[in-house]
């Protein structure tokens, strides 16, 4: 018996025995760690989603207003009616424009944060990007309603800058215009852009941060001017982050029902249609069919992004 044995005795009773068991069977630890979240995701989340989707294959009896539990594609036929199709097109176009604008606004911010910001500036960047996420979503949307209102700060500012004519000209345009910004698609767009912007900046910044600085130098060394380097090196390598961010902005816009209700015209977006059909109208099958739309659109979106090679750099 030596005071300093080559193999140390097991320590800590049960905990020690467990540690040893987990070390010998890493799969066991993984199984124990993953089971609760998988059950949660599988049963509570996916289960309820599938229950909802199943509803879309039922229909509603037009006389009694009761749901008929028989398989039918009648609800989907209803979805393709002009007034419903209109809602879908409006939402998808809005989501696409919001995503493009978010990408354009987020890129320089994320690029600065990833490549130049250090120490204090980096902390300031995270704070500035995250700060809007800390306050209530409703508060932010109502704040925007005040900003965009006819008596709001934006109108006041434009008047001071003698630019009221510009706003008037914009509001007199078809589709994007309206009575005031807070009752136009332009207003809805601005609020969407503001609310979802952090979800674009953060993944983009993370992706740009992973682009090694020496690749930029290598490109420049090989004769590429900054614009060429951006096009052939930085952009392709940041694309996975851009796609991740656009998944957020695109799908969040597709599903939102509060912003268009508070700021914008009275025309419905998908989220509002779902809300109306499952609530007051009691047409759960149609509401379910509407919820399938964003899922299908996102499916096509990801498939297209993959085809374009967006995930090649991952």
């Amino acid at each position: 018996m030596s005071a300093n044995p080559a193999i140390l005795p097991r320590r800590g009773g049960v905990a020690g025995a467990l540690s040893d068991a987990f070390w010998r069977h890493p799969g066991l630890l993984l199984f124990l760690m993953l089971t609760p979240p998988v059950l949660w995701l599988g049963i509570i989340y996916l289960g309820s989603l599938f229950a909802l989707l199943a509803q879309s294959f039922f229909s509603i009896d037009e006389f009694s207003g009761l749901v008929q539990y028989e398989f039918t594609l009648k609800t989907y036929g209803e979805l393709l009616r002009a007034q419903n199709l209109d809602v879908i097109v409006r939402t998808v176009v809005m989501a696409a424009i919001v995503t493009l604008a978010a990408a354009a606004v987020a890129f320089p911010i994320a690029y600065f944060a990833a490549r130049y910001a250090k120490g204090k500036w980096k902390a300031f960047f995270y704070l500035a990007v995250m700060l809007p996420l800390w306050s209530s979503y409703l508060v932010k949307v109502y704040a925007w309603k005040l900003i965009l209102a006819k008596e709001g700060i934006l109108n006041w500012l434009l008047a001071k800058l003698h630019l009221t004519w510009l706003l008037e000209a914009w509001l007199s345009l078809p589709i994007v215009g309206g009575n005031s910004l807070s009752f136009s698609y332009t207003g809805t767009f601005l609020v969407f852009l503001y609310v979802w912007l952090p979800f674009m900046i953060l993944p983009l910044q993370a992706a740009l941060e992973r682009v090694p600085g020496n690749l930029v130098e290598a490109s420049s060394d090989l004769g590429a001017a900054p614009a060429t380097t951006f096009r052939h090196v930085i952009f392709p390598l940041a694309l996975p982050g851009l796609v991740a961010g656009s998944i957020f902005t695109f799908s969040l816009t597709l599903g939102d029902y509060i912003i268009p209700q508070i700021v914008g015209t009275s025309r419905l977006f998908i989220g509002q249609a779902v809300y109306a059909h499952q609530g007051t109208a009691g047409n759960i099958p149609l509401a379910a069919a509407f919820t399938v739309v964003p899922i299908v659109v996102m499916g096509f979106y990801l498939w297209g992004a993959k085809r374009l090679g967006a995930f090649d750099a991952m």
Partner: peptide, 25 residues
């Protein structure tokens, strides 16, 4: 032209496109 210490090859391009980068530009 520089041969970098850790090579700095473009990970999203194959070998030919890496080598031809200067010519492409």
């Amino acid at each position: 032209n520089t041969v970098f210490q850790d090579y700095a090859l473009f990970p999203h391009l194959n070998v030919v496109d890496n080598v031809a980068y200067g010519l492409m530009v």
